[in-house]
């Protein structure tokens, strides 16, 4: 970064504008991140033992697997609910579309703690969901289970599915569908053969985005789940504040970060991902729940 390419004669004075932001970023984010990676490889005497431990201690791998399964469930739910929603958003008039968009953005506006508190109230023993399920003879309390965490996380992450999908679906020319129908195709077949392939880019972007974001959730699983079935973010927090195992936490944190960045970079190839983040940034993000 220090060596400038030859074609530059004098660096533009505009680079000076970047100094404060870069200084802040470096001091507060990059130095701590690099420092924790440095600790994880045993500082000056290089070792990969902390990384090896992650895969051999029997706990981390299990938690990672549980996190991935939960994230996959959340992604699936968000997709099944988000696709029809985004589809209808492209079909209705401008005013109703505006209303539907505001509804999508509501989870962003609601405070993280207020929303998690609401989910505790809804899912608790003898709460509305429990009472409702009891009507059908199901005595299931979702509070304190991975299922409860999944339900709450899906709600928060749905916008990250709906927005890239909406952006992809509104670019599809519906007359193609009408053409297929006009040529005698069954509506479902027309959808499957014409519409679905055209929407796939947005679908993949949304799937990866939601999956990636759900890997890092901390507050929701901590409040709605149980310590017995913790997810990777809780493990990371526990290792840092309770066990003071900074090297182990550094290794685990680095692993999570690398997985996240690889997935985000991959999703970017399908377009729409960062644009979704852009839209979200232009509304208000909740990815740090």
């Amino acid at each position: 970064m220090a060596r400038a390419p030859k074609r530059w004669r004098t660096p533009s004075p505009h680079w000076l504008f970047l100094v404060p932001a870069l200084a802040l970023l470096t001091a507060i984010l990059l130095v701590p991140l690099v420092n924790s990676v440095y600790r994880s490889v045993g500082r000056s005497d290089f070792t990969l033992e902390h990384y090896a431990t992650l895969f051999t201690d029997g706990v981390t791998l299990k938690v990672l697997l549980r996190t991935a399964t939960t994230a996959a469930m959340v992604t699936l739910i968000a997709f099944l609910l988000g696709y029809p929603y985004a589809y209808v958003m492209t079909r209705v008039g401008p005013r109703l579309r505006g209303i539907l968009l505001v509804i999508v953005l509501i989870p962003f506006w609601t405070s993280v703690m207020a929303r998690n508190f609401a989910w505790i109230v809804i899912l608790q023993r003898n709460g509305p969901v429990h009472s409702f399920l009891k009507l059908f003879g199901l005595d299931v309390v979702l509070y304190g289970s991975v299922a409860g965490v999944t339900v709450a996380m899906s709600q928060v992450l749905l916008p990250f599915m709906v927005l890239p999908l909406f952006s992809a679906l509104s670019g599809i020319d519906r007359r193609l569908l009408l053409a297929a129908r006009g040529l005698g195709s069954h509506p479902l077949k027309a959808f499957w053969k014409v519409y679905w392939p055209l929407s796939r880019g947005g679908v993949v972007a949304g799937l990866i985005l939601v999956f990636t974001l759900s890997l890092g959730f901390y507050v929701t699983p901590a409040l709605l789940g149980t310590p017995k079935e913790s997810l990777v973010a809780q493990l990371l927090g526990q290792r840092t504040t309770q066990l003071l195992d900074f090297a182990g936490a550094g290794a685990l944190g680095f692993l999570v970060l690398v997985i996240t960045l690889v997935l985000v970079a991959w999703a970017n190839r399908f377009g729409g991902t960062i644009s979704a983040i852009g839209v979200v940034a232009a509304s208000r993000t909740k990815d740090r729940t």
Partner: peptide
């Protein structure tokens, strides 16, 4: 530089929190 400045948006909050806490 632009990507670097945006990076905190895609980094999981818990990873930032742990690193920042230790430092």
């Amino acid at each position: 530089v632009r990507t670097l400045l945006m990076i905190s948006i895609v980094t999981p909050a818990i990873v930032i929190a742990v690193a920042v806490y230790i430092s």
